[in-house]
Design a protein around this nucleic acid. Structure first.
Lengths: 233, 233
DNA sequence: ATGCTTTTATGATTTTTATCATATATGATG
DNA sequence: CATCATATATGATAAAAATCATAAAAGCAT
């Protein structure tokens, strides 16, 4: 196994719970889901869900990579990076909160199952183990968001970016060398920094031998060093 | 009705969903809850739950005011201010995440019901409407946290603090004049600022006639002005 | 009330980071 | 492959906010 996945636990992990939610359903329930879902392929950059629009479906990401972000006044904050196996749209389950609270778009070519949200609402009432799994999902996202929240409000640029790099390596790509589908601008939105500061900070990491970058290809050389920066602030 | 409660919707509300979760239970289930709960009174400043310790009970706040905060390396971030009617500890429902992810302490004298978390877990499996209400709670907290997250990472000091003042007035105290149980240091932890910056910013608001402060007594004079500051950043 | 501690307040300074300006590189497109 | 657009990079400057130092005010216990 890859060292970075096993050893390094960042304080602010990009949330990516991954459970077999639909495996908890009865055969009949699975049949209902299958009859009420569509599979859609999204091209790179395509919008999957738009902040403010009605949530008619829950998205189950099957392949690819998605960013979920909050937009306001030309500013944007990436809330989650969603890898296959995770769900999008659950926060619209309350009937009084039935619009997307964020925008989701595909980083790379992405496949998603779209399942009618009312079917999901019904399944929650009909299958308590499914409901419990949804509760677990929301709880995990919540905890990881708290950690990220702390990281982005209490650390400074080097700490934030070190954390994000470790998260990407350990949590999203699950390897220490990866082709980054995110631009510097997107790393900025992920860290709440300016694009220029991201570039400068990445350069600093390279000069210190913590990472190496060649175009889109990232390599984490010294995860322990990054972790130390992350912990110091 | 008070204008500030009805009209002013801040972008980053301090989360405080309030539902009658236990009213959804059957009489028999309510009886089980009542037999497995204790009511505890906490004095001002007392720790109600400690980050890292096992979550044996869910807290149902009946009276008083509680802060839920994240601690790390002498730094602290207030995650939620919890008013009566809200629950604490739900994020420990997943069995693989069964310790408190945060510390909770009483701002003022506070009464809480402590209900065995395993009873709650069982009720989620036995009563789907209860489970659904818990999902709604977690969803609402999540959405409000996203908003607050955006606010604290993308606005600057005046915007952050304007938002927090509006939240406290409209969401927590539900009146435009209130005795603040929070110190300036705690406002700093709530906004991710330094204590000195909070003091200076509050002074600025006073000079601009947006609020008036006398010791612990706060009065929001111009909520629309605060809202404008909040929206501009 | 008196002394002691904590909170609030204020000014000076430094650090951090954003912004602005501009240059270079990369990539897409006809 | 030439052109345009976009992404990345770098330096100079400005703005924002933290830190440090210190003082005044408020709370609290004796």
């Amino acid at each position: 196994m890859n060292a970075i996945v096993d050893r390094i636990k960042t304080s602010c992990t990009v949330p990516n719970p991954n459970r077999d939610y639909f495996g908890l359903l009865t055969e009949e329930q699975q049949k209902i889901v299958n009859e009420n879902k569509v599979i859609i392929e999204y091209k790179k950059g395509e919008i999957i869900a738009k902040q403010g629009s009605f949530t008619t479906h829950i998205l189950n990401i099957k392949s690819g990579l998605v960013k979920v972000y909050f937009e306001d006044n030309h500013k944007s904050l990436i809330l989650r990076i969603v890898a296959p196996g995770s769900l999008i749209g659950l926060t619209s389950l309350p009937l009084n909160q039935n619009v997307f609270q964020y925008t989701a778009s595909a980083y790379v070519e992405t496949t998603a199952e779209l399942i009618d949200i009312n079917i999901i609402r019904k399944l929650i009432l009909d299958n308590s183990r499914f409901a419990s799994a949804i509760i677990d999902f929301l709880s995990e996202v919540s905890v990881q968001k708290n950690n990220r929240f702390f990281c982005l409000t209490h650390r400074q640029s080097y700490g934030k970016l070190a954390d994000i790099l470790l998260c990407l390596a350990g949590n999203i790509f699950k390897t220490d060398t990866f082709d980054l589908a995110l631009s510097r601008k997107e790393l900025a939105e992920l860290s709440g920094m300016s694009t220029e500061s991201v570039i400068r900070t990445l350069k600093g990491f390279q000069e210190d031998g913590l990472i190496s970058i060649q175009g889109k290809s990232f390599k984490v050389i010294d995860p322990d060093g990054l972790l130390k920066i992350c912990q110091l602030g």
